[in-house]
């Protein structure tokens, strides 16, 4: 028993504090996971009401369609859309990864790390393309 007491205290990691969040280095799968949660919260708080409002304006009448055009044509409107586009793309792409993991596809350590990096890469690429489209690059 004395041996155990004499052992060097091992570092313990329990629940991390708020002020440690920035310095806590997550693996790629952890980054995908927390971004899935954050994007989900953004889609709930901002995405659903904004999408319904745009749907209403775009469908109600010719006149409201013009106001829809004005909203999505304005810079603030485009910035909100950009945030929502990122949130939706990340949430969807990460969601597909989770569905595959549920099917036991790619649950090995290496495969799951690569798929997490792929999610981040595909999300950035898709968001960039849609952002260029949104701001009229093509």
């Amino acid at each position: 028993m004395a041996d155990i007491a004499a052992q060097k205290a091992r570092p313990q990691y329990r629940n991390i504090g708020v002020n440690q969040i920035v310095s806590y280095r997550l693996p790629p799968a952890g980054i995908v996971s927390i971004l899935h949660r954050i994007s989900g919260a953004v889609l709930f708080l901002l995405g659903i009401p904004f999408a319904l409002y745009l749907l209403q304006e775009s469908l109600t009448s010719e006149l409201s369609f013009q106001s829809y055009r004005a909203i999505v044509g304005s810079i603030p409107g485009k910035l909100v859309l950009l945030v929502l586009i990122w949130a939706f793309v990340h949430h969807a792409v990460a969601g597909i990864r989770y569905l595959l993991l549920d099917r036991h596809v790619g649950i090995q350590k290496d495969a799951s790390r690569s798929s997490a990096l792929a999610v981040l890469g595909i999300t950035v690429a898709l968001t960039a393309v849609l952002a260029l489209k949104l701001f009229g690059a093509f």
Partner: peptide
């Protein structure tokens, strides 16, 4: 959420 669902029904109802 239930409010959003009702709103969606109203939007589609009018089209």
């Amino acid at each position: 959420l239930i409010g959003y669902a009702i709103w969606a029904v109203i939007i589609l109802w009018r089209v």
